Measured scan of single mutants.
Amino acid sequence: NQASVVANQLIPINTALALVMMRSEVVTPVGIPAEDIPRLVSMQVNRAVPLGTTLMPDMVKGYA
């Protein structure tokens, strides 16, 4: 199964993503693939992302 990017902490709106904020986990539904974690670093989220939430492409500015 494909691992997705999951929030490792609460990520406030407009926060630039850092490695420590993300982990990979096999979840349903599938979100952003875990292999894209390096690409996500320094991109901003466009909403608050609670701990344990799967990151979806529409949550990250400039990802989709």
Rank of each mutant, 00 (worst) to 15 (best):
N1C: 06
N1L: 15
N1H: 11
N1P: 15
N1D: 15
N1Y: 15
N1G: 14
Q2E: 15
Q2W: 13
Q2A: 13
A3F: 08
A3Y: 09
A3I: 09
A3T: 13
A3S: 10
A3Q: 09
S4E: 01
S4D: 01
S4K: 01
S4P: 02
S4V: 02
S4I: 02
S4G: 04
V5G: 01
V6Q: 03
V6Y: 01
V6F: 00
V6T: 06
V6N: 01
A7N: 00
A7S: 11
A7R: 01
A7H: 02
A7D: 00
A7W: 00
N8M: 09
N8E: 10
N8P: 01
N8Y: 03
N8S: 13
N8Q: 09
N8A: 13
Q9W: 09
Q9V: 11
Q9R: 15
Q9E: 11
Q9K: 13
Q9N: 08
L10I: 09
L10D: 15
L10K: 10
I11Q: 01
I11S: 00
I11A: 02
I11N: 02
I11P: 01
P12Y: 05
P12C: 05
P12A: 10
P12K: 08
P12F: 05
I13H: 12
N14P: 00
N14T: 05
N14D: 12
N14Y: 15
N14V: 03
T15N: 04
T15G: 05
T15P: 02
T15A: 11
T15H: 08
T15F: 06
T15L: 04
A16Q: 12
A16I: 15
A16V: 14
A16E: 12
A16Y: 13
A16S: 10
A16P: 11
L17C: 03
L17Q: 00
L17D: 03
L17S: 00
L17T: 00
A18L: 14
A18M: 12
A18D: 12
A18N: 11
A18F: 06
L19H: 14
L19Y: 11
L19T: 12
V20Y: 12
V20R: 12
V20T: 15
V20P: 14
M21T: 03
M21K: 03
M21W: 04
M22N: 01
M22W: 00
M22H: 00
M22I: 11
R23C: 09
R23Y: 06
R23F: 05
R23W: 04
R23L: 04
R23G: 10
S24M: 10
S24F: 06
S24L: 06
E25G: 09
E25K: 07
E25H: 07
V26D: 15
V26H: 10
V26E: 15
V26F: 06
V26L: 11
V27E: 02
V27D: 03
V27R: 07
V27P: 01
V27Q: 04
T28V: 12
T28R: 04
T28I: 08
T28F: 10
T28W: 05
P29E: 07
P29C: 05
P29G: 03
P29Y: 03
P29S: 03
P29T: 05
V30D: 12
V30I: 15
V30E: 15
V30H: 12
V30P: 15
G31R: 01
G31D: 02
G31W: 03
G31K: 02
I32D: 00
I32Q: 00
I32Y: 01
P33E: 04
P33T: 06
P33Y: 12
P33I: 15
A34K: 07
A34H: 08
A34R: 05
A34W: 07
A34S: 14
A34N: 05
A34F: 06
E35C: 07
E35R: 05
E35L: 10
E35G: 12
E35I: 07
D36P: 00
D36M: 11
D36N: 13
D36T: 07
D36H: 13
D36G: 04
I37D: 02
I37G: 05
I37M: 15
I37C: 05
I37A: 08
I37V: 06
I37E: 01
P38K: 13
P38L: 13
P38V: 11
P38Q: 11
P38I: 08
R39E: 05
R39F: 11
R39T: 09
R39N: 09
R39Y: 06
R39A: 08
L40Y: 01
L40G: 00
L40W: 01
L40P: 00
L40V: 05
V41T: 05
V41R: 05
V41M: 05
V41L: 15
S42D: 13
S42V: 03
S42N: 12
S42P: 02
M43G: 03
M43W: 06
Q44H: 12
Q44R: 11
Q44V: 10
Q44K: 13
Q44D: 04
Q44L: 14
Q44S: 12
Q44F: 10
V45K: 00
V45Q: 01
V45P: 02
V45M: 05
N46M: 10
N46Q: 14
N46D: 10
N46L: 08
N46T: 14
N46F: 06
R47F: 06
R47E: 15
R47I: 15
A48P: 08
A48T: 13
A48N: 14
A48E: 11
V49K: 00
V49G: 01
P50Q: 11
P50R: 06
P50G: 12
P50E: 15
P50C: 12
L51G: 12
L51D: 13
L51N: 10
L51S: 14
L51C: 08
L51W: 13
L51E: 15
G52Y: 05
G52W: 04
G52Q: 03
G52V: 00
G52P: 02
G52H: 08
T53L: 14
T53V: 08
T53N: 14
T53E: 08
T53F: 09
T53K: 08
T54M: 03
T54F: 01
T54A: 06
T54R: 03
L55A: 02
L55G: 01
L55D: 01
L55M: 11
L55E: 00
L55F: 09
L55Q: 00
M56N: 05
M56C: 13
M56K: 08
M56I: 07
P57D: 05
P57N: 06
P57W: 07
D58W: 12
D58M: 10
D58T: 09
M59F: 13
M59H: 10
V60H: 02
V60I: 12
V60A: 00
V60G: 00
K61S: 12
K61I: 14
K61G: 09
K61N: 15
K61L: 12
K61F: 11
G62D: 10
G62C: 15
G62L: 10
G62Q: 07
Y63I: 04
Y63D: 03
Y63N: 04
Y63H: 04
A64H: 12
A64P: 15
A64M: 10
A64F: 07
